[in-house]
Design a binder for these strands. Structure first.
Lengths: 116, 116
DNA sequence: TCATGGTTACAAAAATGTGCGTAATTTACG
DNA sequence: CGTAAATTACGCACATTTTTGTAACCATGA
């Protein structure tokens, strides 16, 4: 999704939020400040390249704030901006909606087994 | 985004809604029933292959209902399911949120010019 | 020398576009 | 009457584009 085709705000948001990582990163950041390495631990399967790319995209979109501290060891912290915080409930609402749609057949292999 | 990595409903929704087309198609379908060719007209840049693929994905996710009518000329209609209808306001909210974030600098070349 | 948080170039994988073929039915032509 | 052409909504194979992974390298400071 390199370019926009529709002049529609919906397409513009999706350009930022599309993909596996953006919403997950926002979700983890809604916990509070995180370092680069924290986010790597939260999402063990993301490559460091993707992590930097996605964080930059979120930063450019005004959703995430990046702070690079002096000193040792190097420390870079990521937080949600006020706009990012306002986005969180909207993303949560999508998650809740989905749990309603998929009517409980999410995580089929983790379903509680009653042992009577 | 072929597979899920997180057991998180947020990642699951995004697997369905990610990309340029899903939310746009839902948006157009929120207008009411549309035929395949209507959706092609609404989004002139989508290829027929992508249109069928995306519509199938939305159908499988329970967001869109497909009805194939007998007769000539062939007619296939697409509608939002009740779940799809419930999703619409959430998508709209994202669009509104974005218009707030990007603070009016959307559509810079369409900004109203006061002629006073 | 190690740790953190990167960047860059190259390669692999995934998504998307293109063009052709098909099915069912109706209409048009000779 | 027989047959060819048109319409809609696809499916499929192959090619191109875009995204993502991998591995190597860089800077800072203890």
């Amino acid at each position: 999704m390199k370019e926009l085709v529709s002049r529609c705000p919906i397409e513009e948001v999706m350009q930022v939020l599309s993909g596996r990582w953006p919403t997950l990163l926002i979700y983890y950041l809604s916990d509070g400040t995180k370092r680069f390495s924290d986010l790597q631990r939260d999402n063990p399967t993301i490559s460091h390249k993707m992590l930097t790319l996605e964080l930059r995209k979120l930063e450019d979109a005004g959703i995430v704030q990046r702070t690079d501290f002096d000193g040792y060891p190097r420390r870079v912290e990521y937080d949600l901006t006020p706009a990012g915080l306002r986005l969180v409930p909207l993303i949560d609402a999508l998650g809740d909606w989905w749990e309603g749609v998929s009517g409980g057949d999410v995580l089929p292999d983790v379903v509680t087994v009653r042992t009577t």
